[in-house]
């Protein structure tokens, strides 16, 4: 198999980036539960314990407040820690360390202390893990100032964005949707998440949205796994309904590429935002507002959103599937919008 056709899922792509950065820079270290031998839930640390040793691939107790706080302190003192958290839901345990400490220290110190750390967490549902293990919390995290929040939708972006995160000087919350990672025990990841990944290091900049598909009738903004719902919907809209949909993946919530989003809506006049987070007070509202604030007259019809209703994630499959975004929901929303 040649390098040109090498395809990886997100978990493997992340592993490559972490391994390369650890090899290049002794300040890069990783902390988390079950990472040294087990490789962590993403497999991101697989084999890295053996390669880099227990001083740099650190298994932690179940002590999120101490671990996130310690990572912030280590970052302030010159290290570049990656902290892996199996489920983003667990930020509830240590939210002060994240939002009050790690995110605010650079600002409060007047820039004296940089906090170059990465919090890597899985997000999202679809596996009947119920309300405490299925959230995305995109809006909760992106709302708090002082941390970059990124959400790759495919392996190519994932690797490049991890390099960007580890080479930068900021606190980065790196969110990987559980349906996209290619984790053990979770079945086949969404096919579109597996992409050709160069073996050498490269960066994907933060704050630059990716136009995944060009179109002229409606703009679909998808985040993380929902990018693929939008791509599937766009294919159906074109083949079955003759509707040309443009699909945009913001790739990062903070910073958010409002310009690319606005330019697209200016062209199509219609906007549907698709995000797995709770619908209210979140990313979907922010994206619509960022268009409306610049020029509300670009809309030919009211913008729409497809997101998780404002309920805790239900365990039972029919109820959970009812709540999650899907390509068919995107199609029906667009058809409704086009009427």
């Amino acid at each position: 198999m040649t390098q040109a056709t090498r395809k990886l899922p997100i978990g493997r792509a992340l592993r490559e980036a972490v391994e390369a950065e650890m090899s290049n820079n002794e300040a890069v270290m990783m902390m988390g539960q079950d990472i040294f031998s087990f490789g962590g839930v993403f497999g991101v640390a697989e084999g890295l314990g053996e390669k880099f040793g227990a001083e740099r691939i650190i298994d932690t107790p179940i002590s999120e407040s101490a671990v996130i706080g310690a990572a912030a302190g280590a970052a302030m003192a010159g290290m570049r820690p990656i902290v892996e958290m199996a489920y983003v839901d667990f930020i509830g345990v240590c939210f002060s360390a994240i939002a009050n400490y790690a995110a605010k220290t650079h600002y409060m110190s007047g820039g004296q202390f940089q906090v170059p750390m990465v919090l890597l967490a899985s997000t999202g549902g679809g596996y009947s893990n119920a309300a405490q293990h299925s959230q995305t919390l995109h809006g909760t995290l992106a709302h708090m100032p002082g941390m970059k929040v990124v959400c790759p939708s495919n392996a190519y972006d994932a690797k490049g964005m991890m390099h960007t995160a580890l080479q930068g000087d900021d606190f980065v919350v790196y969110l990987a949707n559980i349906q996209t990672i290619g984790m053990m025990m979770l079945g086949k990841p969404i096919p579109g998440t597996i992409s050709q990944v160069p073996s050498e290091a490269y960066t994907v900049p933060f704050g630059e949205a990716n136009v995944c598909r060009e179109g002229s009738d409606v703009t679909l903004i998808g985040t993380a796994a929902a990018v693929h719902d939008c791509m599937d919907a766009a294919a159906v809209l074109e083949s079955d309904h003759g509707i040309s949909a443009e699909v945009i993946d913001p790739r990062t919530f903070v910073p958010l590429d409002r310009e690319t989003i606005f330019n697209s809506v200016q062209k199509t006049g219609r906007l549907v935002v698709v995000d797995e987070d709770y619908i209210s007070y979140g990313v979907t509202g922010e994206i619509i507002t960022s268009v409306a604030e610049i020029d509300p007259t670009v809309f030919k019809s009211a913008p729409r959103r497809v997101a998780f209703p404002d309920v805790p994630s239900p365990f039972s499959r029919p109820m959970e599937q009812y709540c999650l975004p899907s390509s068919s929901k995107v199609v029906s929303t667009v058809l409704d919008l086009m009427q």
Binding site: M1, R6, K7, G182, G187, K188, P191
Partner: peptide, 11 residues
Amino acid sequence: MDGKTPVFDLA
């Protein structure tokens, strides 16, 4: 590689 996938699906 694409096509080489885990056999167990938690969902």
